[in-house]
């Protein structure tokens, strides 16, 4: 098991390195710069600013010193938030985004697994078609449309829930979590339906029925363990995707999370901020993929044995 984890972590190093390098040069090559504004800055001031942020050095020098900084845990100063280090800004936004992502994931799992399993028990009937059609709508409907719709219905029309903020009013975390989780709930529903359908046709489900077990035990104990493995392997990419995709929801609901840094940085050519958030997200994606693979492995005794190498 440890060997497996080590190999995966070592494999991640070149991946992340390529991400850093590609982002660094792409963003520098993109037209415009952090100090270009509609009203041109006085050349002497601009030169002074560029010197302050090492932008007057050659591209390679900047690259080398940036990488060297990363090894010291220094992601450089933000260009648009003077006086702030990028790592501090990420650290300030992360807890909120992570909490939002976590709730959204819970929504996705609860709704998705239940809908998927119910659909799989009676394939090609209304019990299958209704949840799966809803899932299809969930996948197709963009977050920036679903969010305002929910706000209109539950916030303004019914006046049940607050329409913005995070942790200021009771219940203000509900709508953002649902909005963010909806699309993923739909994916989870489709994955669990597929997985469950496959497992329910296995010979050992027939064995379980032949033992006279109640249908509830057949489904929950015998089928779900194998049937939900596709969902588990999807969890890693899903959580990373939730964090990366949270900016729309954060914008709609005025949530001070990580997402707005990411988007604003791209508009403002805030080089260090773009790099910082990209690196952070790619590390997260790698880590969560590894975590969900480990979880899936733990759930499957055959894989577990192969990896631990015991006979």
């Amino acid at each position: 098991m440890w060997r497996f984890i080590w190999i995966r972590l070592l494999q991640a190093i070149p991946v992340i390195f390529v991400v850093i390098t590609a982002t660094f040069f792409l963003i520098r090559k993109a037209p415009g710069g952090p100090f270009d504004a509609e009203k041109p800055v006085i050349p002497s001031v601009k030169r002074a600013l560029e010197a302050k942020y090492n932008l007057d050095q050659s591209m390679w020098e900047q690259y080398v010193s940036y990488i060297a900084g990363l090894f010291r845990g220094d992601m450089g100063p933000s260009f648009k938030y003077p006086g702030w280090q990028v790592e501090d800004l990420i650290a300030s936004g992360l807890p909120i985004t992570a909490e939002l992502g976590f709730y959204a994931l819970l929504v996705a799992l609860a709704v998705g697994v239940i809908a998927g399993v119910i659909a799989a028990l009676k394939p090609n009937t209304a019990q299958d078609y209704i949840p799966m059609s809803l899932a299809m709508i969930g996948i197709c409907m963009p977050t920036f449309m679903l969010g305002p719709l929910l706000v209109l219905l539950f916030g303004i029309h019914l006046e049940w829930l607050p329409i913005s903020g995070w942790g200021d009013l009771p219940g203000d975390k509900i709508l953002p979590s649902i909005t963010l989780g909806a699309a993923y709930a739909a994916y989870v529903a489709r994955l669990s339906r597929g997985g469950m359908l496959e497992i329910m046709s296995q010979d050992y489900i027939r064995t379980a029925r032949a033992k006279g077990l109640p249908e509830r035990v057949v489904v929950i104990k015998h089928a779900m363990r194998g049937g939900l493995i596709p969902v588990v392997t999807f969890l890693g990419p899903a959580f990373a995707g939730l964090l990366a995709g949270s900016f729309v929801v954060e914008t709609i609901f005025q949530i001070p999370g990580l997402g707005r840094f990411y988007v604003q940085a791209a508009f403002n050519r805030d080089y260090t901020m773009i790099l910082g958030t990209t690196i952070f997200l790619s590390v997260l994606i790698v880590m969560f993929n590894l975590l969900s693979d480990m979880l899936a492995m733990w759930m499957n005794p055959r894989l577990r044995q192969q990896v631990s190498g015991k006979r």
Binding site: D203, Y204, R206, T207, A210, G212, G226, M299, N300, P301
Partner: peptide
């Protein structure tokens, strides 16, 4: 599974691997 029990063809697939 109580008064009438069954054994199936393929013991590789008839037992739950999980």
């Amino acid at each position: 599974g109580d008064d009438i029990a069954m054994i199936f063809q393929d013991p590789m697939t008839s037992l739950n691997p999980f």
